[in-house]
Amino acid sequence: MSLEQFKNRNVGTQNYKKLDLEHSPTCGWCQFKQVVSRTFKPELFVGLWVTLREMGNALFRGKMHTTQYPFEKLPISPRYRAIHDMLRLLESGHYRCIGCGLCEKICISNCISMDTRYDENQRKEVSEYTINFGRCIFCGYCAEVCPELAIVHGPRYETASEQRASFSLFEDMLTPIDKLNLQQEYDGFGAISSNADENIKKTPLAY
């Protein structure tokens, strides 16, 4: 790597704009005059008017800028790593997790644990799944390693609760089936790149 960008220490070419400021008063009389003129200017009322106007806007014209937390929340970056979500397949509604156990293996604080079994449909069923949030350090490896984009980091950053168990079970993290249409595709760590299609070779098919 070239170090050009670090060696260029010429910062004088930027477009600084000088403010048109008065010189500070130097003599005692000059200072007295400045105090008197600032005191009796009507600028105080300009400020009061702005307040009054915004109050009117907020109260009568619906232009409130305050976020009503906890009833309202600001959107956060998709790369933020909060409490995990378990996503469902959009078509069938079945959970995406295939029980491969990679998240359990990669977890550096060893807080993911799962039980699997052979189910009636000859598939691998995740019979139990849990994350110990007392130990989770929200590193994001589980979401990154997940081959199915099944475990992802959600936007739920409030982790105060009476019990940690309240959000550590599979069902708690899983998208509720009635909110399937609201499920957002994950964009953070481990999501496929936007040019993924260009990077795959096609396998020949006989039919």
Binding site: G99, C100, G101, E104, K105, T116, R117, Y118, K124, E125
Partner: peptide
């Protein structure tokens, strides 16, 4: 043993 455990566990 079917689908009960990964070898690496």
């Amino acid at each position: 043993f079917v689908y009960t455990s990964n070898a690496w566990d």
